[in-house]
């Protein structure tokens, strides 16, 4: 009695498992960047709500992890789309080619800006990338070109045009994608504007990277946790502090905080959209053309994403904090995305 029960249970389980596992996939699988995750999920949900296709599965794996999975090969085991908070690298493209993922459609969906903000009650700052580097780097070159631990205590030490207040910057910890982007866009941009360090790039690339990427640990830079909301709260109670967070949080809290100008440009929707605000990056997703037609709905998903209702300046993604491409770019990107024009090898 017990034996038959057990045997039949095992048999049922086996058929259930194998039957389902072998069936073709009818849900789009999306992997990739956590920065693009909020936008991708919003589109996925709206797409699923139309009822014609299943709601795509969106995994948050990080850009690099997503690329690895995406370039793993062609077939139902591999994802159809990967999100990226940077452009695909040439090496990743080659890996894709090697695995048989030959035709990839690149879709640039918009921008992600990083704001350096302070409380509304304080004075708006105008920083250059060099100021940011000199204020926050772990080691800076002294007058003779030797690297010393950052001696700057106040903003005035950094640049005499800035106010005489203590340097106190609340920002994300190293595990955060925002921090990576900040280091890459602001710190590295700033450190390359210093000739001594720029020269280093040729002579000692490792040291160059360490100098440009090193954020000081003596208390001037405060790791305030992954939660951008928390940083906004702390800024409104501390007039002297600056905070680093995603533009969408600045946009949601314009009543409490103001973004500092960087190289004379304030972080605004338009400035980020036309590229004049320096601390911003483009975000992308990549489509595996070989899966179109095999996995139902990929084309329709791309259409939904590249619809002005979604990614336009008035679309629902703008509500979630996406900064749209300029109108002309949007039209051309949408056209090539919907035609699934394969990308060429990135430089």
């Amino acid at each position: 009695m017990n034996k038959t029960l057990l045997t039949s249970a095992v048999a049922v389980a086996m058929t259930l498992l194998s039957g389902q596992a072998l069936a073709a996939r009818d849900t789009i699988n999306i992997v990739g960047s956590s920065t693009v995750f909020p936008f991708s999920t919003a589109v996925a949900e709206t797409f699923g709500r139309t009822g014609k296709f299943n709601t795509p599965k969106v995994e948050s794996t990080g850009t690099g992890g997503g690329m690895k999975l995406f370039c793993g090969g062609v077939g139902v085991d591999h994802p159809d789309i990967t999100n990226a908070s940077r452009q695909m690298k040439a090496s990743e493209f080659e890996n894709c080619q090697k695995a048989g993922v030959t035709e990839i459609t690149e879709v640039k969906i918009g921008f992600d800006g990083i704001a350096i903000a302070n409380a509304k009650s304080a004075k708006q700052l105008d920083l250059s990338l060099k100021d940011i580097f000199l204020a926050l780097a772990k080691d800076v070159p002294d007058s003779s070109g030797k690297f010393v631990p950052n001696p700057n205590k106040t903003w005035k030490d950094v640049n005499s045009a800035l106010p005489d207040t203590k340097i106190e910057v609340l920002g994300p910890p190293p595990t955060s994608g925002t921090r990576d982007a900040f280091v890459e866009l602001a710190m590295e941009g700033g450190c390359n504007s210093i000739p001594v360090i720029k020269a280093l790039k040729k002579s000692d690339e490792k040291l160059h990277k360490a100098v440009c990427g090193g954020v000081r640990e003596d208390g001037a830079y405060v790791e305030a946790g992954e939660n951008d909301n928390l940083i906004v709260q702390k800024l409104s109670s501390n007039k002297n502090a600056l905070g680093i967070f995603g533009y969408s949080f600045l946009d949601q809290n314009t009543d409490k905080v103001q973004g500092s100008k960087i190289a004379g440009v304030a972080p605004s929707y338009d400035a980020i959209s036309d590229g004049s605000y320096p601390v911003s990056r483009s975000i992308y997703f990549y489509v595996k053309n070989a899966h179109v037609g095999t996995i139902p709905g990929i084309k329709e998903f791309v259409s939904e994403f590249t619809n002005d209702k979604a990614w336009g300046p008035e679309g629902y993604l703008a509500d979630k904090g996406l900064i749209s491409l300029p109108d002309a770019d949007r039209t051309s990107v949408a056209k090539s995305a919907r035609a699934l024009t394969p990308m060429s090898k990135p430089e």
Binding site: L16, L17, Q20, A21, T27, V31, F37, S40, T41, A44, E45, G48, N54, T55, K57, V58, E59, S60, T61
Partner: peptide, 15 residues
Amino acid sequence: GMIAFIVDIPSGFTD
């Protein structure tokens, strides 16, 4: 891969 946005309620071991 369980850190994912999945709207549909799973109805089996391989969903």
